[in-house]
């Protein structure tokens, strides 16, 4: 099987029709004026091929918002681990979100390995989609080195004039391609087209902030006592939007939910957010991060400092969702720019 194959745009409708019949298919769809969301689709007409990052990243399929981990029955003295998942294809994942999925994969395969996450992941087929242009001014994917595909997918689509060049990255991807009669091997000319697009992209996508990738970590290491956190803290409403929409935020809370029979029930895992006060509140009412400034600093540090220490990788993908969704207009690019200015001045 060729590593690169081609799908003519005329055949795209058929491709999606077949894809949707194979297993549940989700893709970006338009949701309101300037919002998009991943949702189930059955035909290509529902899919928004040109979209800015969706409200929630595809992490919602890997780590559901409400996940039953254990089911119990007191009378029967039973307590069993559960996994609810179904085969799923996610179409149209941008490179920033592919990076986000890669981050989650690292975290959940780290010991102790999360069985539910990893079993679910095996059933998900990921089809990426290249951004030929910027989505909007909030993105900082070039700074975070995520403007080009860098693994994390089964198939990867790049849109050229009248066709898609598809990179086949895994065996599952290859098997899927075999089921699609309309897909042809890529010619030399196609590959040239892809190369030219990437060259063109190099001129469009340039680091959005004047700092090198490797200097981000030292910058944040020196920023713990910076005034910027107070400024952000004064504006933050603690609505928790920034963490909920982040493709790499994975913190969760767990709790038992008893059924009405007062006998059976389940242990449920839910998304949680470090931006809410209860997150770091412990028995007795004491909170480790009572001030919003400390909570916001924690969020930034988790992306650029702590994660780098632990996994040697930034946990910001540059998707821009946190800035895009913030009502108080707390902006990641502005924050980093302020840090660059003030940390330099401190020297």
């Amino acid at each position: 099987m060729e590593q690169y194959v081609v799908l003519n745009k005329n055949d795209f409708d058929d491709f999606i029709d077949i894809l949707a019949k194979l297993q549940k298919l989700v893709a970006p769809v338009k949701r309101g004026e300037k919002n998009y969301a991943f949702d189930e689709v059955t035909s290509s007409s529902e899919i928004a091929l040109k979209y800015i990052p969706t409200i929630l990243p595809p992490k919602k399929y890997f780590l559901p918002q409400n996940e039953t981990l254990v089911e119990y029955n007191k009378k029967q003295n039973k307590r069993e681990g559960t996994l609810y998942s179904e085969p799923l294809t996610i179409f149209g994942v941008h490179t920033c979100d592919l990076a986000g999925i890669q981050c989650l994969n690292i975290v959940f395969s780290d010991r102790p390995m999360d069985a539910n996450y990893n079993l679910r992941k095996k059933k998900i087929l990921v089809i990426g989609l290249e951004c030929n242009e910027y989505c909007d001014e909030y993105a900082s994917c070039a700074l975070m080195h995520n403007q080009y595909p860098n693994g994390g997918y089964d198939l990867f689509f790049t849109e050229l004039e009248n066709k898609f060049i598809i990179h086949v990255n895994t065996l599952s991807g290859e098997e899927l391609i075999k089921k699609m009669g309309m897909i042809k091997p890529a010619s030399e000319e196609d590959m040239k087209g892809l190369e030219q697009l990437r060259i063109k992209k190099r001129k469009i996508f340039k680091p959005e902030i004047d700092i090198s990738y490797s200097n981000l970590h030292p910058l944040f290491e020196k920023s713990f006592n910076n005034d910027v956190w107070n400024d952000i803290g004064n504006r933050c409403l603690s609505c928790t939007n920034c963490t909920n929409v982040c493709p790499t935020c994975y913190c969760y809370d767990m709790g038992y939910d008893t059924d009405l029979d007062m006998n059976s029930g389940s242990l449920i895992r839910k998304w949680d957010s470090c931006q809410s006060r209860p997150f770091a509140t412990v028995a007795g009412g004491e909170s480790f991060r009572p001030e919003r400034a400390a909570r916001q600093r924690h969020r930034y540090m988790r992306k650029f400092n702590y994660a780098f220490d632990k996994y040697n990788r930034y946990f910001c993908t540059g998707c821009g969702r946190c800035s895009r969704t913030c009502m108080a207009k707390i902006n990641l690019k502005e924050t980093i720019n302020t840090l660059i200015k003030t940390v330099k001045a401190e020297k």
Binding site: N35, I55, Q65, L237, C239, T240, N241, R277
Partner: peptide, 21 residues
């Protein structure tokens, strides 16, 4: 009742923000 704003659940439901409108 968890002391978290309605926004949190609203975002998880992927509603378009009213303020955006």
């Amino acid at each position: 009742t968890k002391d978290v704003a309605v926004c949190a659940e609203c975002k998880l439901n992927e509603n378009e923000c009213m303020y955006d409108k």
